[in-house]
């Protein structure tokens, strides 16, 4: 069996996985942004055209997709702050690992605050 390459400070660790996640969430948000610019542009076509397309955002499946979108935005935005701190803060590189877990916990807390309310909206629960 081939011997696995020795670990580095970067490979397979928080540094690498935060980078991978930042890319994947970034691409996902980018493609949503393209669609969202076009659907919003329909306000200039007619109220009926805009409402017809925006109604598809209110269906259960897309509603669940919006949870994923918000999760991606929360991670990407907060991890972006971590990247900035690594670049500009004197101790940024030293604390990059713990900052990643702060990002994950903060994103999770915000997501937990958002998800029940959004699900209630999507599924018409009267809370």
């Amino acid at each position: 069996m081939a011997k696995l390459p020795a670990g580095t400070l970067y490979r397979g660790k928080v540094g690498m996985w935060s980078w991978v996640l930042h890319r994947i969430t970034g691409v996902a948000i980018f493609f949503f942004l393209l669609v969202h610019t076009l659907d919003t542009a329909l306000v200039r076509v007619s109220p009926e055209a805009y409402d017809a397309v925006i109604n598809t955002y209110k269906t259960p499946i897309i509603g669940l997709g919006e949870l994923g979108l918000v999760a991606a935005i929360l991670f990407h935005g907060l991890n972006g702050i971590r990247v900035i701190l690594i670049d500009f803060w004197r101790k940024g590189a030293k604390y990059q690992n713990v900052m990643f877990w702060i990002v994950v916990v903060l994103a999770a807390l915000l997501f937990i605050g958002f998800a029940p309310r959004h699900l209630a909206h999507v599924f018409h629960w009267n809370v």
Partner: peptide, 23 residues
């Protein structure tokens, strides 16, 4: 963008909710 988008999501999706988004 962190401020603009978090604010956008808070007002549109959290406060008003997806069902309230209309023309």
């Amino acid at each position: 963008l962190l401020v603009l988008i978090f604010g956008h999501l808070f007002i549109n999706l959290f406060q008003n909710g997806i069902q309230a988004i209309t023309f």
